[in-house]
Design a protein around this nucleic acid. Structure first.
Lengths: 335, 335
DNA sequence: ATGAAAGCGCTAACAC
DNA sequence: GTGTTAGCGCTTTCAT
């Protein structure tokens, strides 16, 4: 059943049917009714390919993230997908992992699909300082479609970023730890992403402004697996710390497991915070204080910007949107 | 840059270019080289819409799930997406929630996008006994494209199902609880989905074969939120039980929270198991024994079946694939 | 307000 | 082995 069939059944031309489908004002109400009835009866749906060919758009947004099975990204993707649908767009989802060549491959693949815009979820796409060549593919993509980064920042034409203020919140949390008497704060981290770098900067900056030394030993890079973190901490008997900032809830829960195994009192003996305010944080015992970096908010901003860009002529949008984070206090902190 | 431009630059016809793009054997190696070089130079990518129009397929698979922010589904989607890409297909992701009308809407939307196949993740799409009308839309969809259910079963032409043997594993777990001396086993559940129904059947059947009564009080339907479960259990002071089967890790962790709050010894005073073997289960304290229903395996089976159907003429595939589950024992069980 | 007809960029059947 | 050409189903001028 195609537009010709409908046109014939309705006794009009395909142009008129097309106009009805697109709700053009230049068709009489009467004709519209009639055509719509015929379409309804026959369960007609316009062929998206043909339409895409003509309009060079299929109203699809590409979403790229390293891994949807990660809770943070899953939340973001779920939120994005829902909002996009409300605006009449569909989502092609791709999970690129963290490897450079794969990321690049996926971006070209997505572009080849003629997506209307590209959303990249996760600070891994923001690249690392000193390795600017690795973000070239994002810059290139932005010349074809608007690119939106969630939880990362990248300066470039047609690239719009929304991210939590990781620097500030880490600065604040670190400061509060220091002010409540902590002196040896372990910074647990599992990557060198944009976000991780900002968190580290906030941490170090807080130490410095309180006249505390930045100790290399207290910056620990580990894999984000709860038992791995626990075991590494247990093994490093030389390492002394009275508090920990985990850049992800998984890392922080690993620290809780460590503390429990060593029969340390939380938060008295050791104070712990995580990031992302995921379900993990209410699962552990004691429950974890965790930074909420407001993914939903970041997603909303992104969608709102995207719609303006896709629909308006001259949108005027900030390419750089930083959102304050907040610490959700539970039982692993005493401030 | 389209096929005509390339043809002109290469000094051949568009047919030849098309053949090169599709790697047809009926082009001389020399011509291929030349055309490919030109395509490379000019960064040519075939227009997917035009191609879709001709072939009536864009090599995209629709994935429908109630909610990707759920860990179980996120794992499944991540796995599916990766495998699909390896086979040259892309995924359009839709999150339908649990409401009937929305599910139906999404399915027609996906079909309108001319997907090559539809994967439905989650037993919610398998419907409930006695409400056959609610699965009509799945049956209808299957007349257009092959439909694959993950973690649910539905008997219908062109519908292929892969699911864990929830009945058997719940029967086994219940039996082991009984044989290790438990008499009042609480069945915690948050839905009436196909999967939930099968689990309940296994539970009741085990009770019966051990000569134990099936008590209505011990079947509790609650929302899958950790604190909610804990609080409800704490409030129901009349309810007596010495063991808990949670049909999801979240529910079981709620039970752990309850036990901890009441200073019950786990597993001595109360024995607890969950489902899905998610990160939650290693987060809690004590760590939760949980049924692994092998999503990856289910996904692999599905993909493998799908590829056969999409590529072969007469595949011969079982529409009904049941996979055994296994209990991953941690610290909340004593058997 | 409506229709005729020219694309959109590709595939594939057919001709050579 | 390569070229010609007729669709695929729609949108969109341009007439009327």
């Amino acid at each position: 059943m195609n537009i010709y069939d409908i046109a014939e059944l309705a006794g009009v031309s395909i142009a008129t049917v097309s106009r009805v489908v697109n709700d053009s004002p230049r068709v009489s109400e009467k004709t519209k009714q009639k055509v719509r009835a015929i379409m309804e009866e026959n369960g007609y749906t316009p062929n998206v390919f043909a339409r895409g060919l003509g309009l060079d758009s299929m109203k699809t947004i590409g979403i790229l993230c390293p891994d949807v099975s990660d809770a943070y990204m899953a939340t973001a993707v779920a939120h994005l997908e829902r909002s996009m649908h409300e605006h009449g767009y569909d989502c092609i989802l791709c999970c690129s992992g963290f490897e450079q060549s794969i990321k690049e491959k996926y971006v070209s693949l997505l572009l080849a699909k003629r997506i209307d815009a590209l959303i990249m979820v996760g600070s891994t796409y923001a690249g690392v300082e000193g390795e600017e060549s690795r973000i070239q593919y994002v810059l290139d993509a932005a010349r074809q479609v608007p690119v939106f980064l969630i939880n990362g920042y990248l300066d470039g034409e047609n690239i719009y970023c929304a991210y939590g203020d990781d620097y500030q919140i880490t600065y604040d949390v670190t400061s509060q730890m220091i002010e409540s008497g902590r002196r040896r704060i372990l910074f647990l981290c599992d990557s060198h992403s944009y976000s991780a770098v900002r968190k580290l900067a906030g941490y170090e900056s807080a130490l410095k402004s309180h006249g505390l030394p930045v100790l290399g030993d207290l910056k620990l890079y580990v894999k984000n697996r709860i038992h791995t973190v626990r075991d590494i901490l247990l093994e490093r008997r030389d390492l002394r710390f009275d508090s920990v900032i985990g850049t992800d809830d998984g890392l922080a829960v690993g620290a809780i497991k460590y503390a429990n195994a060593k029969l340390l009192k939380i938060p008295e003996d050791i104070c712990i915070t995580g990031f992302n305010n995921s379900t993990l944080s209410i699962c552990s015992d004691p429950e974890l204080s965790s930074v909420d970096n407001r993914v939903e908010e970041l997603c909303n901003i992104t969608i709102s910007n995207m719609m303006k860009i896709l629909q308006e002529k001259d949108p005027q949008i900030s390419r750089n949107c930083k959102v304050p984070c907040r610490l959700v206090k539970r039982c692993t902190t005493d401030f």
